[in-house]
């Protein structure tokens, strides 16, 4: 499942520079040490578990049940409708 190759230039098609597609090098290459916490102990009331609703709000249920209505979804639907008409 590799990307298609342009037979003329034999190069991969250039990727559009949408901001969401390009990750800025700076942020991704930064390498912080995980362990240097500003202090090494805190009361349990300060943890995310106790002080926020994180557990309830972090996840959206089931990506496989969500129906999206974007450009790709519509194009896919049209393509499949065409197939169905041709094969009835």
């Amino acid at each position: 499942m590799s990307t298609t190759t342009d037979p003329v230039t034999n190069k991969e098609p250039s990727i559009s520079k949408d901001s969401e597609e390009i990750l800025t090098k700076k942020t991704l290459e930064e390498d912080d040490e995980f362990e240097d916490f500003p202090v090494d102990n805190w009361p349990s009331s300060a943890t995310l578990r106790e002080s926020t609703q994180l557990q309830a709000n972090l996840w959206e249920e089931n990506w496989d049940d969500v129906e999206v209505d974007d450009d790709f979804a519509n194009e896919l639907k049209n393509e499949l409708d065409r197939y169905k008409q041709e094969h009835q």
């Binding site: 590799s2 990307t3 990727i15 999206v68 974007d70």
Partner: peptide
């Protein structure tokens, strides 16, 4: 969410990613 394989390839094949 939408099953777009081509977009997925493009996202993860970006060199920095």
């Amino acid at each position: 969410l939408n099953g777009n394989l081509d977009k997925f390839e493009k996202v993860i094949n970006n060199e920095t990613v």
